[in-house]
Amino acid sequence: MKLLEIFLTFLRLGLTAFGGPIAHLSYFHEEFVKKKKWLDEHSYADLVALCQFLPGPASSQVGMAIGLNRSGLLGALAAWLGFTLPSAVLLIMFGLGMTYFNLQSHHNILHGLKIVAVSVVAHAIYGMWRKLCPDMGRSLIAIVSCLVLIFIKATLAPVIVLIVAGGIGAFFFKTTFVLPHTPTVRELNRKLGVCCLIIFFSLLVLLPLLRSVYPMHSLELFDSFFRAGSLVFGGGHVVLPLLQNEVVTPGWISKDLFMAGYGLAQAIPGPLFAFTAYLGAVSELTPNGWTGGLLCLISAFLPSFLLIAGALPFWEKLRTFSHIRQSMLGINASVVGLLLAAFFHPVWTSAIFNLRDFLVALVGFILLEKWKVSSWCVVLFSIFISLFIF
């Protein structure tokens, strides 16, 4: 009964939680701290702090952590399934529909979805810059990171930039931020945590080697999406450049299909990482469709599952290390630069071709930032404009 309660509660949130990761955390707080009282304020803040330190989609990780804390590994799985299932199904169905469309005959709708991606990513950058780059040092890290990633297209460039920024933060930045000291309610198994961490790092190292020995597309997909889910700090929007590099650059998915799916992902509830299911569904190579969609979805979220199960038992000790907290200041600033580079290419370069495109994107940004309009409304606005004005 406890697992069913976890699943149904997160399923309802997965059907209704619009607005991105910050909004999702607010929904979780209302549901699990205020209403159900599964956690107290300090324990919830502790879980949120842990998920900010780990790569991957923060809101989904908090959901997994709540499920893990409530009912072990099966609880984490039930929480993830409930929260992710609605958006994943919708995006796979949309992807299947897109494969039957002649993209050229639906150019206006496609272009409208790409423009809304400009508004959404610009809105994310603006909010993240204000929060994560409040001083000259972190602003400089963001700008340098952006320039490096614009001019250097190597696959490992984002990873190296994040590592360097973390090192700078650890030794040159200071933080007085102190995490809450209330421990989680459930006593978690450290041996199981070690096993999960070993599996995570083993897959991260071995998958590229296996891919080079056995060049099967299913293994390539698993490796690409597992790596994307393992190396993304900052949530769903930041995965955009990594995924674009993994699936558009080798020609698995066209840039138009990529940006159209990303635009639509803003209009539905649940985690933005469910966008990976769409990418698997529209892949030009097999497996694709439902099989490809589910493979990419599981591959992208598996790192988060393993990291949460592995790190949560040790979090009480880790969060006391000042260098860990300080390194995150540099990493988070670098994340802003990574997102800014992705905003320039492919988001801006594939969507904004004239003053009219710019004005539509600007209106979408104002609706999101100033009027606090839901992202799905902005998507509908852009599609309407594309149908009747473009």
Rank of each mutant, 00 (worst) to 15 (best):
A265T: 01
I268N: 06
I268W: 04
G270V: 00
P271I: 07
F275H: 00
Y278K: 08
G280K: 01
G280T: 14
V282D: 00
E284N: 05
E284Y: 10
G289W: 03
T291G: 04
G293S: 02
G293Y: 04
C296R: 03
L297P: 05
S299V: 00
S299D: 08
S299M: 04
A300N: 12
L302A: 00
P303L: 02
S304T: 06
L306M: 03
L306E: 04
L307E: 09
A309P: 06
L312C: 05
L312K: 07
P313V: 07
P313Q: 13
W315N: 07
W315A: 08
E316D: 15
K317N: 14
L318R: 02
R319V: 06
H323M: 13
Q326N: 15
M328E: 10
N332L: 12
N332V: 10
N332S: 15
N332W: 08
A333F: 03
V335I: 09
G337N: 10
L338S: 14
L340W: 12
A341F: 10
A342I: 02
P346G: 04
V347W: 11
W348P: 13
W348L: 15
T349N: 05
F353L: 11
N354S: 00
N354R: 04
V360D: 10
A361M: 12
I366T: 15
